[in-house]
C-alpha cells in the first residue's frame, strides 16, 4: 500500500483548516519554514550497531572442531591402560604354580559341567565311586595314624577330631560305604576340608545338600510328612568315648590304674 504524498503547502492548509484558524500569509510562511527545517536536516551516519541491522550478514562458515580426535585418543588411552593392567596381572598369575594348578582344576570343572565328555564322565563316575562328587578334590588319605595324636582322652578337646574313630569322616571318605549300605546315625556329614559331602544313595539319586541327613538322624521327621513309628525302638545312641563313665555311672574299667591321670597344673612360683 502506497501512501499519497501531499505537498507542504497542502499540508499547512489542511492543518489550518482542521484547527479552524484563519489562514494568513505570515503564518503559512512560518509553518512552511518550520516544516522545511525538519526535512532539511540530513540523517546522521548510522552507527556500527545500526549497521548490523542494515547489512546482510553472510552465512556463517561451518564450524570445524580443532580437536576432532579427542574421543578416539581417549579411548585408545583407556584401552592401553586396561591392556597393560591385564598383562601385568596375567604375568604375576602365570608365575605362581599354585594358581596354575587351581586354574587347571577350575577349567576342568567348568568344562566337565557344561560339556561333559567321555573322559569327564569317567572322571565323575570315578569320583562318585569314591564317594566324592565331581569337581571337589579328593580328600587326603588320613588312615595313617597321626603321630601327634597323643593319648585319647575322649574329652573332645579338639573339636576337629571326632571322639569315635569309627565316625572319622576322613576315614569314612577314604572307605566309603559299599553300595546298598546306608549311613548309620552318628556318622559325620562333613568332609575333612569342611566341604559338604553330597553322597548318592543306592539308587543313584543325589541327597539333598541342604538337609542331607533329614530322616536319618533321630528326632528328625522325614520330609514326606510321616511320623516315626512309636512301636519301633529308638535307634542306637552314640557310644560314650573311651575313658568316659558309662551311662549307669560305672567306670569303663574297674582297674584304677587304667584311669588316666589328670594333668596337674604346676604351682606358681613366688
Amino acid at each position: 500500500m502506497k501512501h499519497l504524498e501531499i505537498s507542504d503547502d497542502d499540508a499547512v492548509r489542511l492543518l489550518l483548516d482542521e484547527a479552524e484558524v484563519a489562514p494568513s500569509e505570515q503564518l503559512e510562511s512560518s509553518l512552511l519554514a518550520l516544516r522545511s527545517a525538519g526535512k532539511a536536516s540530513s540523517a546522521p551516519e548510522p552507527s556500527g550497531e545500526l549497521m548490523v541491522f542494515m547489512t546482510t550478514t553472510p552465512a556463517p562458515a561451518p564450524v570445524v572442531p580443532l580437536r576432532r580426535h579427542r574421543n578416539v585418543r581417549g579411548a585408545l588411552m583407556v584401552a592401553a591402560a586396561l591392556a597393560g593392567t591385564g598383562l601385568g596381572v596375567s604375568g604375576v598369575a602365570a608365575a605362581n604354580p599354585d594358581f596354575r594348578t587351581a586354574a587347571d582344576q577350575a577349567v576342568h570343572n567348568v568344562v566337565g559341567f557344561f560339556a561333559p565328555s567321555a573322559a569327564g564322565k569317567a572322571e565323575r563316575a570315578d569320583h562318585a565311586e569314591h564317594g566324592v562328587p565331581a569337581g571337589i578334590p579328593a580328600a587326603p588319605d588320613r588312615t595313617q595314624p597321626n603321630d601327634d595324636s597323643g593319648p585319647e582322652t575322649g574329652t573332645g578337646s579338639d573339636s576337629n577330631r571326632p571322639a569315635d574313630p569309627a565316625a572319622d569322616p576322613a576315614t569314612d571318605a577314604a572307605h566309603p560305604a559299599p553300595p546298598g549300605h546306608s549311613l548309620t546315625p552318628g556318622q559325620s556329614p562333613e568332609t575333612p576340608g569342611g566341604n559338604r559331602s553330597v553322597k548318592s544313595d543306592p539308587n543313584g539319586a543325589e541327597r539333598d545338600p541342604v538337609t542331607p541327613f533329614r530322616g536319618l538322624l533321630p528326632g528328625t521327621p522325614p520330609l514326606d510328612g510321616t511320623l516315626p513309628d512309636p512301636t519301633k525302638p529308638d535307634p542306637p545312641k552314640d557310644k560314650p568315648g573311651k575313658g568316659l563313665p558309662l551311662e549307669d555311672g560305672s567306670l569303663p574299667s574297674p582297674d584304677p590304674g587304667r584311669i588316666p591321670e589328670l594333668p596337674v597344673a604346676p604351682e606358681p612360683q613366688r
Binding site: 527545517a37 525538519g38 526535512k39 532539511a40 536536516s41 540523517a43 546522521p44 548510522p46 542494515m54
Partner: peptide, 15 residues
Amino acid sequence: IYAALAPGINGYLKV
C-alpha cells in the same frame, strides 16, 4: 526505513 525516517526524527530532536 532509516533513510525515510531519520531526517524527520533528527529535525524533530534538533528543534
